[in-house]
Design a binder for these strands. Structure first.
Lengths: 165, 165
DNA sequence: CCCATATCGTTCAACAGTGAACGATATGGA
DNA sequence: TCCATATCGTTCACTGTTGAACGATATGGG
């Protein structure tokens, strides 16, 4: 056992919301880490999230729509789609009605790849459902939704105008 | 009004836990965006998080300890600390007892910079406390903590050994 | 006293995401 | 009709993080 870390004590105790944000950040981190372990060679977490998005909401969206939904920039979406298309997991089609737009469709190979990954993660998702009930998740969902909406509105606001002088 | 997006319908409805993870990812995204708007020129979200960490838990940790606590690699911590030191917000001292280690201390300037940012964000934190009660945050904290612990344990596990053969 | 092992902090190449350009296309009011 | 404005998808320079090195230091068993 080593000497305990010398350290100045914290000045105050955490506000409840600070603790929530900290836990949320950690959950995000560990969830990503857990998923990444199951992705095949060359597939990024963002790639997998894109495929999952199609599984959840269907496909046929434009890249700009995907960017807004997935909270990424259009540039990131372009990059992700190009790689997914190279892998054969999506096709990107021109939109005849509006020639600025494109439409993204998941391929059969994409469906299969997505399914294979989820199957590979099955033990973990089952452990999750073993440790927590659906009702526990449902119990916190309204609050998380409200918090997300609140932050999405507030995050668009800039810094205050340096007070008045 | 444009034509509604042509899109294949989703096959199934979201599992409760999927929705929770989605909301958590969005909360993380918007929270980061909201904070970044208030950071001074040259300060990164990671820099600010480091300063906040010292405010919460005190300073004097080693870089390796900071890496473990903040869920970043040692390389990232080195980078962040070097920049914070250039800004004059932290000092990195040698540990006499263990010459492999260093100890990080926040400076008065770091305290002031951190305080100034928090003051700048005051309107937003007040809006947060206006929209949600402490009890609401406290109500979800145990579940989030348990979920974080669960994921931290499960994320260390690798992929299954490709079944048997 | 060694020496194998572990941890320390740093460096570096690779890579993903951002944000601001850009040309192309749509849209709607003068 | 024409033109200002907006959105489309792409590109590119920049930046932050990762993961694997590396040398230096500490530790503990033989």
């Amino acid at each position: 056992m080593t000497t305990p870390t010398p350290r100045n004590p914290p000045a105050v105790q955490d506000q409840p919301y600070v603790e929530v944000f900290t836990e949320i950040g950690a959950i995000e981190h560990y969830l990503r880490a857990a998923v990444i372990k199951h992705l095949p060679e060359g597939m990024t977490h963002a790639h997998f999230e894109m495929l999952q998005w199609f599984m959840r909401y269907g496909d046929g969206q434009t890249p700009a729509e995907l960017a807004r939904m997935m909270l990424l920039t259009k540039g990131a979406i372009t990059n992700i789609l190009q790689k997914l298309e190279k892998m054969g997991f999506v096709v990107v089609l021109a939109d005849c009605a509006d020639r600025r737009k494109k439409r993204v469709k998941i391929t059969r190979a994409g469906l299969e790849a997505s399914g294979a990954i989820m199957k590979d993660m099955k033990a973990k998702t089952e452990a999750l459902r073993d440790g927590f009930t659906d009702d526990e998740f449902r119990a916190v969902t309204p609050f998380l939704k409200a918090l997300r909406v609140f932050l999405s509105e507030i995050s668009e606001l800039g810094a205050p105008a340096a007070a008045h002088r």
